[in-house]
């Protein structure tokens, strides 16, 4: 066990998670807005934002999938100590954490059932940056339209077409988050998505 396994949680768990949850809720309720989230100091490669979201939402009842390089000893030990969340594969997770490429393909995650669409995974995505430019978003929570830098466009459009089933995304970068629930219509293309299309 490493020394920093025991540290890096909320200083005051009740207050810290209350503040962090309000950031997550504002992000989920207003897709496209970018919120600050603080209070967590997890070991790398987890970012402060990812750590805060995990501390706020995960416990022994929420199976977590660690994708790619996040599936390492430091992260496993830190998450186990602070949340007690069990680790599972992508098909049985409630939360998946990782970089966009590591999380692919999206088809393996639970998207809920027609009678219980809430029984679906939430993906916590590590992005290199979050900016209010790129893809155009419309839908519930958005007054007219919003713009947000997205790692992909096609994947979110495919996810939207599953509504009311589908995945929900919390995009993180450093200590900032944005969210993209399944109800959001995505159009236009970010530069990354355009490059992605060009390559395929």
């Amino acid at each position: 066990m490493q020394a920093n396994t025991l540290s890096g949680g909320f200083v005051d768990p009740a207050i810290g998670s209350a503040h962090a949850f309000r950031s997550v809720m504002e992000a989920m309720a207003r897709p496209g807005t970018i919120q600050n989230i603080e209070g967590a100091a997890p070991p790398a490669p987890l970012s402060p934002a990812m750590g805060a979201v995990l501390l706020t939402l995960c416990d022994t009842e929420t199976p977590v999938y660690l994708a790619g390089d996040l599936d390492c000893k430091a992260v496993r030990e830190w998450l186990s100590f602070h949340t007690g969340a069990p680790f599972v594969g992508p098909a049985h997770c409630m939360f998946a954490v990782g970089a966009w490429d590591a999380l692919a393909p999206l088809t393996v995650y639970p998207i809920g059932t027609s009678e219980y669409p809430d029984r679906s995974a939430t993906l916590i995505v590590k992005c290199s940056e979050l900016a209010a430019s790129g893809a155009t978003l419309t839908g519930p929570g958005i007054k007219d339209k919003a713009t947000l830098s997205l790692p992909d466009v096609d994947a979110f459009q495919a996810n939207r077409s599953l509504f009311p089933l589908g995945l929900d995304f919390i995009l993180t970068s450093g200590d900032r988050i944005a969210a993209l629930p399944r109800s959001t219509d995505v159009s236009g293309s970010s530069s990354e998505a355009a490059a992605h299309k060009g390559a395929s």
Binding site: M28, L57, D118, S120, D168, S183
Partner: peptide, 10 residues
Amino acid sequence: RRAILKGLAI
């Protein structure tokens, strides 16, 4: 809180 987030998403 998890229920609220799913509620907002659907």
